[in-house]
Amino acid sequence: MLEPLVSVVADEGLGLLLDAPVRRVAGECVPLPFADTLEESVLPTVGRVTRTVRDLTAY
């Protein structure tokens, strides 16, 4: 299985060369619920990604 790019950057110590910390936006580490409303709460959303990008650009 291929490692996500952020894992390689953080593991290889390249994160020290970055101006901001490495951040991940992923689904929660829980079993995927069957109900649509609960599923939406554990999957990454546009809002979460946007919020993370804005936090990092303001760093």
Rank of each mutant, 00 (worst) to 15 (best):
A26F: 06
D36Y: 03
V9P: 02
G15I: 04
L16Y: 07
E39P: 02
E40S: 09
D55T: 02
L43T: 01
V49P: 01
L56P: 01
G15N: 04
D55L: 10
T50G: 11
D19K: 12
E3Q: 12
T52N: 03
L2R: 12
G13Q: 05
R51L: 04
P33A: 06
A26I: 10
A35G: 07
V49Q: 07
L17W: 08
R24N: 10
L16H: 13
E12V: 10
V46A: 13
V25H: 04
V22T: 03
V46F: 10
V9H: 06
G27K: 08
T57R: 05
P21A: 00
E40T: 13
G27N: 09
A20R: 11
T37I: 12
A10M: 09
A26V: 13
D11A: 07
L17Y: 09
R24S: 08
Y59G: 13
E39W: 12
V6F: 05
P4L: 00
L32W: 13
Y59K: 08
G13Y: 01
S41R: 15
V9M: 01
G15T: 03
E3H: 10
R48E: 14
T37C: 11
L5Q: 05
R24I: 11
L14N: 05
R51E: 12
V8G: 04
L2T: 12
V25K: 03
R48D: 15
V22W: 02
R48G: 12
L43Q: 05
C29I: 10
P33E: 01
G15D: 05
P44S: 03
R54I: 08
V53N: 04
L18E: 00
L43R: 04
E12I: 09
V53Q: 02
L14Q: 03
R51M: 06
Y59M: 10
V8Y: 11
E3K: 13
A10S: 12
V30D: 03
D11M: 01
T52L: 10
V8C: 05
L18D: 01
C29Q: 11
F34H: 14
L5A: 04
G27F: 05
G15H: 02
D36C: 09
V6G: 12
P4V: 07
S41T: 15
R23D: 03
T57Q: 07
L56H: 00
L38D: 14
E12H: 13
P21E: 01
Y59A: 08
V49Y: 00
G15Y: 00
T37W: 14
V53E: 04
D36E: 13
E3G: 09
A26D: 15
G15V: 02
T45R: 06
G27Y: 08
P31K: 01
D55H: 09
L16E: 15
D55R: 11
L5K: 06
A35N: 12
L2S: 11
A10D: 13
P44M: 02
D11N: 05
E28I: 07
V25Y: 00
R24K: 09
